[in-house]
């Protein structure tokens, strides 16, 4: 499909036209000196020049707290849906890839209607990274650019934006773009240069192997001392889980309303680093050692989840866990590189 070009003023008008049509748009906005995904009120608030957001857009495809059922206490329950149509605007490729992975995980095996119905109503507008964040390593994870999985991909080529509408949803949204021109060969060359630069430039931590090697690396890493060494400093706070765009473990809880007669069964984020993540009734904790929980997270990213989604590595190199970790132990690259150096085979 063809790539359109909007100058920066036209692009602002495009976003404002979508908002004026009453569509819900969630975009990247500044929050003090950092950035967040939030409901967008005006194009002038949109910051496509951002480096990274505090939380990933996961919070819109899998909300922190999401109603699954409403019920009468002690009685019958009914399904509820939280699937308001929404445009997610300004997703970096690594976050986009995380959402694409989650789509596979919630539709493979038992089909999760709550997730999938919401997801179908979300239009994904991605944008190429304009500025590397301080801990990004997407180049190492081969997630710095995306060639699929978006409805529209935006690239800032300096004086204008290029918009690549790849799906029907994306094309429908382009109806709001007035004055769009077709991108010239020169424009596409600029876009290509930006993407090629990102393929190597978003790399504050360099992984010393191809990501596709990680599942194999993990086969012999289970009893390595690095798990205990790192986890000795772990506070089990779960920050690495909360900021991770690919973490999707959840708890299910019943919340009773103030009338004490009705309530909601909700799904809410959980984290495998939290102390009681694997605790069962009777207080038996099946993963009570910090080192076992620390190891489990990095095995999930490099081996367990990839086994479910055709080998895709479930760390997309956003670097958020590196920034969020109080003890400075969460960086997956540090651990994987250490395992690489001291690997026993292959």
């Amino acid at each position: 499909m063809s790539v359109s070009k909007l100058n920066k003023q036209q692009f602002g008008q495009f976003v404002d036209a979508i908002l004026a049509a009453g569509r819900k748009v969630v975009g990247v906005v500044a929050k003090n000196d950092r950035f967040v995904f939030n409901t967008l009120k005006s194009a002038k608030d949109l910051r496509l020049d951002y480096d990274v957001t505090i939380l990933s857009p996961r919070k819109y495809v899998l909300p922190q707290v999401e109603p699954l059922l409403t019920f009468e206490v002690g009685g019958d329950a009914k399904s509820v849906k939280q699937n308001e149509p929404m445009i997610l605007l300004g997703i970096h490729p690594y976050d986009l890839i995380a959402i694409n992975q989650m789509d596979e995980l919630f539709s493979e095996g038992e089909y999760d209607t709550h997730y999938m119905d919401r997801r179908k109503n979300i239009t994904l507008v991605a944008c190429d990274v304009a500025k590397a964040s301080k801990n990004v390593f997407a180049s190492s994870m081969e997630t710095a650019v995306a060639d699929k999985g978006y409805d529209i991909l935006i690239t800032d080529i300096g004086d204008a934006y290029l918009l690549d509408a790849a799906t029907e949803k994306g094309q429908a949204l382009m109806a709001y773009a007035k004055g769009a021109a077709a991108a010239t060969a020169e424009d596409l060359k600029k876009r290509n240069a930006i993407q090629e630069a990102n393929k190597t430039g978003l790399n504050k931590h360099k992984l010393n192997c191809k990501p596709s090697y990680l599942p194999k690396l993990m086969e012999t890493a289970y009893n390595h001392p690095v798990w205990e060494e790192k986890a000795r400093l772990c506070y089990s706070c779960g920050s690495c889980n909360q900021v991770c765009p690919t973490c999707y473990c959840f708890d299910v809880q019943d919340r009773v309303n103030w009338d004490l007669k009705t309530g909601t069964r909700v799904r809410c984020w959980d984290g495998c680093l939290l102390e009681n993540f694997a605790t069962v009734a009777g207080n038996h904790n099946f993963r009570k050692d910090r080192s076992a929980r620390f190891r489990h997270r990095l095995y999930r990213k490099a081996k367990y989840v990839p086994e479910k989604i055709g080998g895709q590595i479930a760390c997309v190199g956003c670097g958020r866990c590196v920034t969020a970790c109080t003890a400075d132990i969460a960086n997956p690259v540090t651990v994987y590189n250490r395992l690489m150096e001291e690997r026993t085979i292959g």
Binding site: D112, F250, A278
Partner: peptide, 24 residues
């Protein structure tokens, strides 16, 4: 085996023993 099987459908992650989901 017993584990914390919260969702029962292989999504929530609580029942994992390494790569295996006890609920499935």
């Amino acid at each position: 085996l017993e584990r914390r099987m919260k969702c029962g459908v292989g999504k929530c992650g609580h029942c994992q023993i390494n790569n295996l989901y006890v609920c499935q």
